Amino acid sequence: MTIRSAQYTNVDTIELLVAYFRNPSLEIRNQLVEFNKGLVRQVAHRISRQCSEPYEDLEQIGYLGLIRAIERFNPHQGCAFSSFAIPYIRGEMLHYLRDKGSVMRIPRRWQELYNKGRKLRKQLTVNLGYPPSDKQLAIALGIDIKEWNECQLALQNRLPVSLDATVSQTVDCSITFGDTLPDHHYQAKQKFEEDRLQLQRAMSQLEEKTKAAIECVFLRELPRKEAAKQIGMSPMTVTRHLQKGIQQLSVLLEPQVA
């Protein structure tokens, strides 16, 4: 398929999605990624404003979600690709943030310094008549101000935080810590939908009669005699198509399962 180097259009994307659905290839997938990189940038910009993670890192992770969406999208379902892809892109970024936000091991030296610093702060407050500055505390502890600031930041950030605590909030969106945790019910539902789309894509590559036999017997659970009557063939022929279809589906689905 020849792609124009000029402005990409929605028609270009639809044509490529249909072509990829019929015959997946790395070349078409890369073109689809190029066409839809604006979706990744849009989500990355929004989430980067709500966390400390660099925009560039979020963008790279977002492309993984875009690729997953391309591989699972069925253009015949009547759903806009952007609506289908954004949850995948956003999900990859949030999972990345969740994984990076795992519990941090604090060096014992910093734990001891932090506890010593808290006691020393109280003593200096009494002696000076006012709370000491971080620089004064660092000097009293005999360490560099930079190390004292890092020590405080590490110990403060390991404290438990409510799942409802907002990471950051803008006019149109906010993310809580709970949003970054996996929803197992949603993941199971998403996995079921992905399996259904994969099976549907594989089924579309079967011969019409083989496809009809599998749909009647396995999906609609009709007796083989009834299936044969509806399709217009003998029960023995239905059995042959079922055997043929199962073999073909095992081959078509094997790369996706792997």
Rank of each mutant, 00 (worst) to 15 (best):
G91Q: 05
F21T: 03
I175K: 06
Q156D: 15
H95P: 02
L249K: 06
D57C: 08
G178E: 05
K37H: 04
R22G: 09
R201S: 14
Q187N: 11
I70C: 04
G65S: 04
L206Y: 08
E56V: 03
S48P: 07
K116M: 09
L66P: 00
R41T: 01
K191Q: 14
R22C: 05
P131R: 03
K37N: 12
R4I: 05
K191M: 12
E71L: 06
E215I: 15
A212D: 14
L249R: 14
N74L: 10
I14E: 10
C79P: 04
Q7G: 06
E207R: 14
E150Q: 08
I89T: 02
V40W: 03
I139G: 01
L97E: 08
A19G: 02
E208C: 01
C51I: 05
N23M: 13
A19V: 01
I231V: 05
T210M: 00
A140W: 07
A154W: 09
I61T: 01
Q152C: 10
K37T: 09
I231E: 02
A138P: 00
D183N: 15
A19R: 09
F21I: 01
L219P: 00
K189V: 12
G101Q: 13
L97R: 04
V171M: 11
F73L: 01
Q256R: 11
K119N: 15
P235S: 02
V11C: 07
K191C: 04
F177G: 01
K135L: 15
G65A: 01
Y8A: 10
G78C: 09
S234Y: 05
L242E: 12
K122H: 11
H184R: 13
I139W: 08
R121D: 12
C79D: 10
Q169R: 15
K229T: 04
Q31R: 08
G38Y: 13
M1C: 10
E112D: 10
E15W: 01
T9I: 05
Q200R: 11
V161Y: 07
I14F: 13
L113I: 08
E147L: 04
D99A: 02
E221Y: 07
R118V: 14
S52D: 14
Q42I: 05
R68Y: 12
D144V: 05
L64D: 06
L249A: 05
R220K: 12
N30E: 14
L26F: 11
L253T: 00
F21D: 11
I145C: 02
S250D: 15
I3A: 08
R121G: 05
N74M: 06
L26R: 14
E71R: 08
P75W: 08
N74R: 03
Q156F: 14
Q60H: 13
V43S: 11
L124A: 06
R158W: 04
Q77N: 07
Q50K: 10
Q42N: 10
S48D: 10
C151R: 00
A138V: 01
A165F: 12
P182S: 04
C51R: 04
L39D: 00
I246V: 09
E150T: 04
R196A: 07
F73H: 05
Q152T: 02
E254S: 15
P160F: 06
F192M: 11
S82Y: 07
H45L: 08
Q123S: 12
K146M: 06
S102E: 15
K209G: 00
